[in-house]
């Protein structure tokens, strides 16, 4: 047996110069994804990264794997075709809030609904960056941008609610300021059989700086995010002195007396996940939603093909040409 080479981040880095703005959150996400892939241990030749259009979608050019920088919003369809043709590949899809939830909303809904076994990293910076600063479908109401000089009057999308509506089997949230958490979440997403969506709170330093600041800044994030762990009570705060309670069918974050008052996280309970999606000032981070055992599209397509082949012989064109009524002249 040949010696198994230990993969490193470098094995997943291409020789191309990275052209994101200095200070952009994308650098950290790229680095964390490369490290996660090295730890997962699939050879770069067995990995394909498919993206749409936007700042984040330049991602494949910086990977040493196979990759496709496709067209705006349609990455889910390219990824589905590739995964169906080559089910053993590890397929990662890169998208943003504009690419995935605006122009590509239809495709994103359907890849989640079909539960195609790929990993989707959704960079959410609540702004269009590559087109230089228009509001996006996740921008908060009132945001003043180049296309909304008087403030946006548009209601924002919640990526988590979107995914749940499409029947998501895996949804996690993480942030560009916490590489360790990102790596953990990416690995968990890869381990899940089905369509894994990872929303990354990502900072656009030029057009929407500090939009997620209270949730991602090292100084404030402990007080504004709950790192949820399956089976564990929802505790947060720098001193672990705050927690999440269930009151009047809603999750309420704040101080508590005894851990028994707190909600225990269970990502397989849709009603709980829906309540998590409603949290505002304190938001959950980690694997928010996970359901195993659902049908997986690419697996089922191949199972059906195999099933047909077990009943019929491998076809030759002559079998078709001579079916039905034929006659001699």
């Amino acid at each position: 047996m040949t010696e198994v080479k230990k993969l490193t981040k470098k094995d997943f880095s291409s020789d191309q110069e990275i052209k994101w703005c200095p200070g952009c959150g994308d650098y950290a996400i790229l680095s964390a994804a490369q490290m996660a892939m090295a730890q997962i241990g699939k050879e770069p030749s067995q990995v394909a990264v498919i993206s749409g259009i936007g700042c984040s979608s330049r991602f494949p050019y910086y990977m040493s794997t196979y990759g496709m920088h496709s067209i705006h919003g349609r990455a889910p369809a390219f990824a589905t075709g590739l995964k169906l043709q080559n089910p053993d590949l590890s397929v990662w899809m890169i998208t943003g809030d504009g690419d995935g939830l605006s122009i590509g909303g239809n495709h994103l809904a359907h890849i989640i609904r079909r539960n195609v076994n790929i990993n989707i990293i959704l960079f959410n910076n609540e702004i269009y960056g590559l087109t230089k600063g228009q509001y996006s479908p996740t921008s908060q109401k009132g945001l003043s941008t180049k296309s909304t000089p008087y403030g946006s009057v548009d209601r924002p999308f919640s990526p988590l609610k979107f995914a749940l509506g499409a029947g998501s089997t895996f949804f996690a949230r993480t942030m560009d300021t916490d590489p360790k958490h990102m790596i953990e979440v990416f690995k968990a997403a890869d381990a899940h059989e089905g369509c894994s969506v990872i929303e990354v709170y990502q900072n656009c330093v030029i057009f929407n700086d500090k939009v997620h600041d209270q949730f991602t800044n090292r100084k404030t994030r402990d007080e504004h995010t709950v790192r949820v762990v399956p089976g564990q009570p929802m505790v947060y705060g720098a001193n672990k002195d705050k927690g999440v309670k269930l009151e009047d069918f809603s999750l309420v974050a704040g101080e508590f007396n005894d851990e028994s008052e707190l909600v225990v996280h269970d990502p397989s309970k849709p009603s709980l996940v829906h309540m998590l999606s409603e949290m505002k000032d304190v938001v959950p981070m980690g694997i928010l939603n996970q359901r195993d055992g659902d049908s997986v599209y690419d697996r089922d397509v191949h199972a059906q093909m195999k099933d047909v082949l077990s009943q019929k012989e491998k076809g030759k064109i002559e079998d078709l040409l001579y079916t039905g009524d034929v006659w001699e002249v």
Partner: peptide
């Protein structure tokens, strides 16, 4: 798009 994805994959 799915067809192009499959072509990229060798179909």
């Amino acid at each position: 798009c799915s067809s192009i994805g499959a072509s990229f994959g060798g179909a």
